[in-house]
Every structure is written in structure tokens, then in C-alpha cells.
């Protein structure tokens, strides 16, 4: 108990912990909200592809400006992620290339180009490769207040876009054909929504890194989906779960020595998913088992038909 209260005090007094927790909370908030759409639209893995694809943007931003400012690097990442998104959309509209293939290609090729650029830079400009590790695995401890402001600014813009086009995005996610028949510019909306997703992904890179960013996008939304059938409630819950996982991951990793923040956040959010899958009312596995037991008790004949008979 004392540990908890100490932690609570430290959350407001300890600069590093406060910054990391705030950054993680912002990340959880934005990725929870926008990830909802990715999960609903069957584009869960786009986070994985875009976060990898951001690497050449970071390398080029550094090459062109020589700056190491978070904002500059993130804008580079944003640009590359956006180009990758357009490539994925264009390539997967072909009948010969499926969506998952386009994702895998964009992920590995963009990342490869970035890796080539970075190693090339290292040779010629004498630039340190520093930053690549941070980028790959996240380095929440290096977050400073300025970074959190940058994240909050970009994330805020993303959320604002989502709020402005709430109705349109809802239609796009659930019935794009109907949307088109109403005269909505479905393709433009698709590009816009995916652009907002890119924003959410890019602001998480510094905290959790490339590999784990996809989990931050999917997990809060997948957990939230179990508790509700309403889009509004689902976004709210995903935001809540995202913040909860971000802050608790930051706190746990600050207490336990040698526990990296990014993976801890991901394991926290995975725990929330597992709990939701089992316990969420109506949809949850526990409820399903109870329902099945009740129905076999009431209708013993069902036991003979078993699984297939239902």
C-alpha cells in the first residue's frame, strides 16, 4: 500500500516518471481512439506496416535538416508513413495483390530503404546511428516535456479530424457502398482516415517503438469491442483502456528494475484484452460457457448433437 501511495506521489513529483506516464497516456488515448477504426475495418495490421515504413522518413528528415528535434523527425516519419499508406491502397486495389501482401511488402521494403539510408548516412556524413535503436524499440525514458507537447499537439489534431468526420467515418467503416450511393467521396475519406491513423502511429514510435506500436493500435480497440456494440462507447472504452495500459505500464516499469517501458505497456494492454475476452458480458468466453451449460441442462438432447448441432 505504501508502495502505491509513494508511486502516486512520484507520479506528480518525479519529472521523468511524470513525463513518461503523460506521454504514454497521450499515446494510449490517441491510438485507442483511432485504432478502433482500424480494427473495425479489418485493417489491424496497417499499424505494423506504417510504423516500419516510417524509418526512411526519419532518415531523410535527419539528412535534409540535420536536426534531431522530435517534431522534425516525426514529420519525416509522417510523410513516409503517408506515402506507404498510399502505396498500400494503390497496390492492393489490384486484383493480383491482396491487402496483406501489400502490407508485408510496404513494411519490409520501406524499412529496408530506411535501413540502407541510415547506414549510408553513417558512412558519409559521419552521423551517429543514434536514434535507430530508440526508434526500433522505443525509449520512453528519453521523453522530455517538449516531446509530450509534440505528441499531444499531433494527437489532438488527429482526434479533432476524427470528431469532425465522425458520421462519415462511421459510414465508411460499416457500409461504404451505402456511403457511395449517398454521394460521399469514399476514397478521399478512406485516405483521410488512414492519414489520421498514420498520425496516431507516428506519435507512438518514440515511446514503444516500431514493433510494438501495432499492439497499441489494435489491443485497446479489440478489448473495447467485447464490451459494447456501439461505436461511440467502443471509442470511449478504447481510449480508457489505452490510457490505463499506458500509465500502468509506465508505473510498473519504473518500480521494477530493468523492465523496459514499451514492452511493459504492451503486456498491460494484452492483459486487458485477455480479461475482456473472458469476462465481457454476453460476448465473453466465460459467459458463453455458462450459457452453453445452461442450455444443455435445460435441453439434454443438445448434448448429443454437441458442438456441430448448435
Amino acid at each position: 500500500m505504501e508502495l502505491l501511495s509513494d508511486l502516486f506521489v512520484a507520479l506528480f513529483t518525479d519529472y521523468t516518471l511524470r513525463t513518461v506516464a503523460l506521454g504514454s497516456a497521450v499515446l494510449g488515448l490517441v491510438s485507442g481512439a483511432l485504432g478502433t477504426y482500424a480494427v473495425l475495418r479489418g485493417q489491424s495490421l496497417i499499424g505494423d506496416a506504417i510504423s516500419h515504413a516510417a524509418l526512411p522518413g526519419i532518415a531523410l528528415a535527419f539528412l535534409l535538416t540535420g536536426s534531431r528535434m522530435t517534431l522534425v523527425l516525426l514529420l519525416g516519419a509522417l510523410a513516409a508513413g503517408w506515402v506507404a499508406t498510399l502505396c498500400i491502397m494503390q497496390v492492393s486495389s489490384s486484383r493480383r495483390v491482396t491487402y496483406d501482401t501489400a502490407l508485408g511488402l510496404a513494411l519490409s521494403v520501406f524499412f529496408g530503404v530506411g535501413l540502407m539510408l541510415l547506414t549510408y548516412l553513417q558512412q558519409t556524413a559521419g552521423a551517429q546511428q543514434a536514434g535507430l535503436d530508440t526508434f526500433l524499440f522505443g525509449q520512453a525514458a528519453t521523453l522530455v516535456t517538449e516531446d509530450v507537447w509534440t505528441m499531444a499537439g499531433m494527437g489532438g489534431a488527429g482526434l479533432l479530424g476524427m470528431a469532425l468526420f465522425w458520421k462519415e467515418f462511421k459510414l465508411l467503416s460499416f457500409d461504404p457502398a451505402f456511403g457511395r450511393s449517398l454521394g460521399l467521396p469514399i476514397r478521399a475519406l478512406d485516405v483521410l482516415l488512414t492519414t489520421l491513423l498514420v498520425v496516431a502511429i507516428v506519435i507512438g514510435l518514440q515511446t514503444v517503438g516500431v514493433v510494438l506500436m501495432s499492439a497499441m493500435l489494435i489491443a485497446p480497440a479489440a478489448a473495447a469491442r467485447q464490451w459494447t456494440d456501439s461505436l461511440g462507447v467502443m471509442v470511449g472504452l478504447a481510449v480508457l483502456f489505452g490510457i490505463l495500459a499506458g500509465v500502468s505500464g509506465a508505473l510498473i516499469s519504473s518500480v521494477v528494475p530493468r523492465l523496459p517501458t514499451g514492452p511493459t505497456i504492451v503486456l498491460s494492454v494484452s492483459a486487458i484484452v485477455v480479461i475482456s475476452l473472458f469476462l465481457a458480458p454476453r460476448r465473453g468466453l466465460v459467459w458463453r460457457w455458462m450459457r452453453e451449460r445452461r442450455s444443455t441442462r435445460q435441453h439434454p438432447a443438445l448434448r448429443m448433437v454437441g458442438e456441430e448441432g448448435r
Binding site: L45, A215, G262, S270, L277
Partner: peptide
Amino acid sequence: TRLVKEDAAIGLVFPALFSVGVILIAR
């Protein structure tokens, strides 16, 4: 379980496993 789609399932499983790996190495 039909509670999550296949792509979401992939995206949930491998980051969790990867996290376990990173934590094991770090600790």
C-alpha cells in the same frame, strides 16, 4: 473464438510474444 478478426489476432499475439522476449533479454 470469433471475438476478434484474424488480422487483429495476429496483431495481438506477436507484439505480446516479442515483448516477453525483449523483457527477458533486458532483465
